[in-house]
Design a binder for these strands. Structure first.
Length: 319
RNA sequence: CGCGGGAUAGAGCAGUUGGUAGCUUGCUAGGCUCAUAACCUAGAGGUCGGAGGUUCAAGUCCUUCUCCCGCAA
């Protein structure tokens, strides 16, 4: 089968999905349509914005579908009319069977973990939060249970000790794009050998992250708080509250920390600072240095800049 | 028109009932010290986000615009 004869429909929404689409387009694969989230009023001021995938598709003059509901007959009819051989899903949402079973060669997904580990919406975050030293990307054919399909291709990546979600996300995005291209080539060669997932080990999950999930629990060990912070940095960011004398608590986001393991007598959550170069918080097994933080209503800044202007830090409490 | 905070020296901030702009740091030069993210002295650096208005006088009060941030999605 010729490359041009393989009609591909691509589904995805955020920036992470653009890279793979771009790789397909630049490798001259025949992407006949793109499915993405409807334009929504989003962000500050509720301005209507289109998804990154849509913007790229429009620039490439690829037809874009933005269904409100994936089971709508009008959408399904439109989808059928493209007569695709293969569908590719990257960071989209759960698909009904009527959609993923439609194409002749099936539908595959790129997932940012080494399946079966970290099934779910936030695999990159959870891998870091749990202190993993490696993760990866997996392509697999969709089947009923989410993220459980037969694996086509898997590639692992080291997680560096100080790496945060931002870095790892970008790294996986690029490796993922290559994996997607390679996966399509394999399918094109008709030598696919998709193997079922081996669920021998204990499975770790990667559920969607909400704001409440991001609150720092100071009871935990310094190491795990450190991992928690980098696993949520730069987005959605770990946070705690800073309580100032006779005023309300303000949210303090923490983007970068360094753990100093040492035994001490300070009460939990004590603030230690020289008002100039460092700011550390007492935890059970040492001190957690806050390196990059953002207080509500201000910009993100490194701790020395923060201390320069925030002179009342010593009368504050961490909650 | 979703709610709220903000814009003042390179950076981070303060600025009272309107009265000619300060703090910390950084920068430059000099001094001091066995030594330090050390200390001392001097200096440069501002159209107080933009535009209008009120006033003898506006960083401060009023109107409007731009940009940034938090919440919410």
């Amino acid at each position: 089968m010729k490359k041009e004869d393989l009609r591909i429909i691509y589904m995805g929404t955020p920036e992470f999905a653009v890279e793979s689409l771009k790789a397909l387009v630049e490798n001259d694969f025949n992407v006949v349509a793109v499915v993405t989230m409807p334009d929504k009023p989003i962000g500050r001021g509720h301005k209507v914005q289109s998804s990154p995938v849509k913007e790229y598709a429009v620039a490439q003059k690829i037809p874009v579908l933005q269904p409100e509901r994936l089971k709508d007959e009008s959408f399904l009819a439109e989808l059928r009319s493209f007569n695709a051989d293969l569908q590719i899903v990257v960071a989209f949402r759960m698909l009904p069977e009527v959609v993923w079973a439609m194409p002749r060669l099936g539908t595959f997904n790129l997932h940012a973990s080494l399946l079966p580990q970290y099934r779910g919406a936030a695999p990159i975050n959870w891998a870091i939060i749990n202190g993993e030293t490696k993760t990866g990307v997996t392509t697999f054919f969709l089947q009923h249970e989410i993220d459980t399909g037969n694996i086509i291709l898997q590639e692992s990546v080291a997680i560096l000790p100080e790496e945060n979600v931002g870095n790892l996300h970008d790294k996986l995005m690029h490796i993922g794009a290559k994996s997607v291209v390679r996966t399509v080539e394999i399918i094109l060669s008709e030598k696919v050998n998709a193997i079922p997932q081996q669920e021998d080990e204990e499975l770790k999950l990667a559920p969607k992250i909400f704001k409440d999930t991001c609150r720092i629990n100071w009871e935990k060990s310094g190491e795990s708080i450190h991992n928690f912070v980098r696993g949520l940095s730069p987005y959605p960011a770990a946070w705690c509250e800073l309580l100032q004398d006779n005023s309300d608590a303000v949210v303090l986001k923490v983007f970068e920390t360094k753990f100093e393991k040492i035994s001490h007598q300070m009460p939990l959550k004590s603030i230690l600072t020289d008002g100039k170069s460092y700011l550390k918080v007492a935890v059970n097994d040492g001190f957690l240095h806050l390196k990059t933080i953002q207080i509500q209503g201000k910009k993100r800044m490194n701790v020395s800049d923060f201390l320069m202007g925030f002179r009342t830090i010593n009368s504050c409490k961490i909650v």
